[in-house]
Each structure stands twice: as structure tokens, then as C-alpha cells.
Design a protein around this nucleic acid. Structure first.
Lengths: 225, 225
DNA sequence: AGTGAATTCAAACAAGTGTATGAAACGCTT
DNA sequence: AAGCGTTTCATACACTTGTTTGAATTCACT
């Protein structure tokens, strides 16, 4: 069956593309890993590029079905919804044992989008975004401008994705402590949820006493060597 | 003068490496941009790899001197310090017009560290981290565990870096609105500072009434196609 | 102006790239 | 078992890659 080899190639290509990127990966390396002939790439996929696109597609499909969209009971409190949402994102992004090739590949796409990115954005990112905006509608005062809503949403998502994007960064700073149970997906989700809820609740009050005001910081020095 | 060509090559290599990554970049392309012969790479740098390392070094040196480390008056309030700190990070990361090649290259290094990364971590990242931890010492209750301190720090840094890491992500979601003045570096810094301060102030209180508790979310479904 | 070292250059090199080819092997229906 | 379309394979083909070479040029210094 030809389908069997096709999926074998995709599953071999995934980790390699994720680890080294499109250009640094050679079709020969993939074929060796999949134990197929070099010509298979062109026969089954028509070229390296199409193989890559299919691999990206596979990546987010697997991610999507592995960790289904966040869902909650109809009568759930907004705060509880946020908790579930954050947990879902973290699970998707950090995966099991935070070493899945799928998210590595998707992060790569996010940093430098290729042609493969549009469907990912449309089907993977956008729904989650809409979901988050829905939760914030319940949590933020009605008069909140959409700029602020967006910024709050980015603040929440940013906290989550940071652990994937800047994973090496985190590892460098805290070292082996990363293995500590305090950095389990569950605990991180708990922290981010509490942090964000506290921020949201406090935002309106801070507005009143705000002593730091529009107080701008000195612009970059126009230095020159 | 040989030095002159050397810097010309580095300045030509910077944007190209930043845009396409190490492997996708060819020495011929760099040499064409720098208007020098291909052999210059090996004559002046000994090879493509060394040229890359020097380019990364140049990137964070330039970033460092362009936006000097955060500084504040001795009697500054902790909240004000945080404001200055966040502003500094955002300025470094988003730069002027958020299109500097330097940070693009550094983000690339952060996602997939190469040999060039260690000095960057040591001299560029670590000091900022220490500075932030110092500020948090003043803002958080003394009994706060170091795990929580770290997580709060990551929450703050994560919010800042998100706008660089997931820039394409942001652009996709809000479109041209990114050009709006609401997303200027100053306004973003203001939002992140307020958000984080509100979170920090609220954290201890939330602890008491915390209804969401350690309430864990369902583990990923062991699906299979 | 002349000399010797430093720098630039055009050209070539071997190795590796993605892709194409045509024959061999396979699986299925007749 | 024969035949035929599908899939695999070894091999070759342009082409690009980083690097090397040796001659030509430039530069600083007496």
C-alpha cells in the first residue's frame, strides 16, 4: 500500500524538519529515516516543498486531536473558563514531556511563516483567539476598549507561549529546577490563571490611583561607536 | 583597510542571517550584498560559521548599546522601577519600527541556540533577569517561594517577548490595527506594567478566596486515528 | 619610486543538493 | 499463470554549496 509509506515518510520528516528547519534538512536524511528510496519524495509528494507543507499540516492536526479545544459546562464561571482555556493552551504547547516535534515545528512556522502557515492560522489559532476574547467579554468591564481587550489577551497568551518559545532561555535561567513539579503543566496553568485574574480584577482600580501615569521612559540613546 | 571590509561584511550578513537563518543563507549572497569577493569570507573570518558567530555577537552588542540597561534614581518606587524595566525590554526587543535585524537574529538564537548563544545568555540575558528579580524582591511578600518569584518573572518577560516572538501571530489577529498608536512601545509598556502590578498586588488576596483551587483540568485524550 | 606584505579577485574544486529516469519488483485482477 | 498498473529502486543529472588556489592588485613604508 502506498499510503503506508506516505505516512511513514511524514512521520520521519516531522521530527527532522522540526529540529533543523526546512533548508537544513535534506530529503536524503528523511528517506533514510523512513527507510525508503530518495525518489519517493518526488513520487509521493511531488517535491521537498510539498512534503514540508504536508508535514506542517500533520503537525497541527495531530496537536489538535491530541488536545481537543477547550470546553466547559454551560454554567461555568468565567474564571473557571479561563483556567480551562489556559490549561488547554499549555497542554497543546508543552505537550507531554515538552519535547513533541509538532509544536517545535509550529513555533518555527510562527517565527517565520511559510506558505504552510495560513491554514494553521485559520484553523488552529483563530478559533482559540475567538474563544479567549469570549471569556474576556465576561471578565472585563463593558466599557473596555477593544485595544485593551486585545492587549489583555496577548498578555495571557504571551505568558503561556513563553515557556515554549523561550524554553532554552528558561532552562538557562533556572536550570534543573525546570524538572521540579512546580513547573508541571498543571501548576504553570494555575499560576498563569491566578496571575491574569488578579491583573484583570485589579486593572480598573489601579486606573484611579495610577501615579505612574503616561510617564514615558527616556528614548534610546543615539549612540555610535 | 581590512577592518572596513570586515564590518561591511558583518553588516551585510546581519539582515540576511536574521531573515533566512544560517543554513538558508549563502556566502555568495552575503558577499554580493557587501560587494566583496566570495573568498573574503574565508580570508577574513575563516569560514561561514565564524562569520555567523561574529554576526550574532555584533547583533547583541549593538542592541545593548542602542538601548542601555535599565536605570533609575536611587529613591525610585518599585512600581516605577518595573515600569522602566518593562520599557527597556520592549525597546530592546521591538526596537525602532520593530523591524531591526538584530532582535530577529537573537530570537532565532533563542528558539534554537547555537554555539553563539552562551555569551549572549551570559552577558545579555542574565543581567536583565537579575535586575527583574531584584525588583520583584521589593514587590512580592518576603515569604514568597522562589518558584513563584520565577513564575511571576516569566509572566512579565513573557508578555514582553510575545510581541516579538509571535509578531506574525499578532499581525494576523489584529491586522493593520498593529499600526495604531495603541500598540506603540510606550503604550504596550504601560499596559504590561499595569497588568503585572495589578496581578502582583492581587495575588495574595486571591489566595484566600481561591475557589478554583488546585482544580486540575482533564488530561489530554489518548486519541488515535 | 620601489619593495614586500596584505588584500582582492576570477576561476576552479570537491562535496552535497533536489530532481529525473528507466529498469526492476510488487500486487491485483483476469 | 499472464498481464498490467503501481510502487520501489539504483543511478545519473544539473545545479548550488562552502572552500581553495594562485595570480593580480593595493597599500604602507623607506
Amino acid at each position: 500500500m502506498a499510503d503506508e509509506t506516505r505516512v511513514r515518510m511524514l512521520e520521519a520528516a516531522g521530527p527532522i524538519f522540526a529540529e533543523k528547519g526546512f533548508d537544513a534538512t535534506t530529503v536524503r536524511e528523511i528517506c533514510a529515516a523512513a527507510e525508503v528510496n530518495v525518489a519517493s519524495v518526488n513520487y509521493h509528494f511531488g517535491g521537498k516543498e510539498t512534503l514540508y507543507l504536508q508535514t506542517v499540516k500533520l503537525a497541527y492536526r495531530q496537536r489538535l486531536q491530541r488536545v481537543p479545544p477547550a470546553a466547559w459546562p454551560a454554567d461555568a464561571q468565567p474564571a473557571h473558563k479561563l483556567q480551562i482555556f489556559v490549561s488547554t493552551i499549555l497542554n497543546r504547547v508543552l505537550g507531554e514531556g515538552n519535547i513533541g516535534w509538532e509544536t517545535r515545528l509550529l513555533m518555527r512556522e510562527m517565527l517565520q511563516p511559510t506558505q504552510a502557515c495560513q491554514p494553521v492560522m485559520e484553523e488552529y489559532i483563530r478559533p482559540q483567539w475567538d474563544q479567549l476574547m469570549g471569556i474576556l467579554d465576561e471578565l472585563l468591564p463593558d466599557e473596555t476598549t477593544h485595544h485593551v481587550r486585545h492587549q489583555v489577551a496577548f498578555s495571557i497568551v504571551g505568558q503561556c507561549l513563553h515557556y515554549r518559545f523561550a524554553n532554552e532561555f528558561v532552562l538557562f535561567l533556572i536550570g534543573d529546577d525546570w524538572q521540579n513539579e512546580a513547573y508541571s503543566v498543571g501548576r504553570l496553568a494555575q499560576h498563569i490563571t491566578r496571575f491574569s485574574l488578579a491583573a484583570i480584577n485589579g486593572l480598573s482600580e489601579v486606573d484611579l490611583e495610577s501615579e505612574l501615569e503616561t510617564q514615558d521612559v527616556k528614548p534610546p540613546i543615539p549612540a555610535m561607536t
